[in-house]
Amino acid sequence: MIIVYIITGILILVSLVIQSHSSLDVIRIFGVKPDFVFIIVVYTGYSFGSITGQVTGFVSGLFHDAVSNSPYGFLALPKLTVGFIVGLLGRAVLKNNVPTIIILMLVSTLVKGIITLLLSYIFAQGMISGIIDVIIPEALYNAILAPPLFFLFDKIFRGELEREGYL
């Protein structure tokens, strides 16, 4: 399992650096860019269970908070929660096919967005208007990118998935 955490850590670090680079503005659609870090969190929850999912979500969220202008925990809590919930269902419940992955990512991003809105409401971050501006476009964008990225991650984590009996 330690290998999963090491590879996931590297993937998150690389994704975070790429995601925050100014060149990624060219791939903005409707003003939003995909959240690669979140896609990794959903994948780890989906493939390796709720503990791995939530730990990945928590740690990546903290790093996300550190490089973003958000208060500490603001982006970590939604990722942690989604990682946990997706991990409870996992591959045992959700079949590994393109429509399932698209729907999983769509719903996960919407849940993440709703939790973020709730936190912004509770902790007065003033972002209530963001549901149409940010959440829906990001959910669609992540959902479109999820199948090829999940396929890629399946290749990267092939050994571990075989050990778990999913491949």
């Binding site: 503990i51 969220g61 208060p71 925990g73 809590l77 942690l80 929660t81």
Partner: peptide
């Protein structure tokens, strides 16, 4: 799994609550 989830959630909420403090 649930214990870890609750602990980490509490950490986030406490951190958000003390947002702006020196430790954070």
């Amino acid at each position: 799994s649930i214990v870890i989830f609750i602990s980490l959630t509490l950490f986030c909420i406490i951190s958000l609550s003390v947002h702006g403090s020196r430790i954070t």
